[in-house]
Design a protein around this nucleic acid. Structure first.
Length: 107
DNA sequence: TGTTTGACGCTCC
DNA sequence: AGGAGCGCCAAAC
């Protein structure tokens, strides 16, 4: 069947979004875990690359993705937007850091 | 087809 | 603790 081969680049995006949509409100996930759960172990950077492509008005909880250090990886203008959304969900930051032991989501 | 690029992660100083 | 240096992996170019 011609072209509906599934190996086009959109596969990664679909999988990432699927996982992203499952993250409960008030919890966070690391880039590494997101990638792994999407079927791409060791591809943390791919997760970031994928998130960057999300449309501006997406309903997906892109803000719940942080790095393994509990910090925001997004560059500055947008970092504040992410922090605002996180705090809105009750996620507190201490010195710019999120307590992964407390907020990390692990199914 | 080969090289460069990141919203990363881990280890070592 | 905090920072520098490598390693990883798929998408873009």
């Amino acid at each position: 069947m011609g072209k509906s081969s599934n190996t086009d680049g959109n596969d990664a995006i679909s999988r990432m979004c699927r996982v992203l949509a499952e993250i409960p409100q008030g919890r966070v996930i690391t880039y590494g875990d997101l990638a792994e759960m999407a079927g791409y172990p060791r591809a943390a950077r791919l997760a970031g690359q994928t998130l960057r492509k999300l449309p501006r008005g997406t309903k997906l909880p892109w803000h719940r993705v942080i790095n393994a250090q509990g910090r925001i990886s997004l560059p500055e203008p947008a970092a504040q937007r992410q922090i605002a959304r996180l705090e809105k969900e009750g996620i507190t930051l201490l010195n710019g850091r999120i307590d992964l032991v407390r907020y990390r989501w692990q199914p």
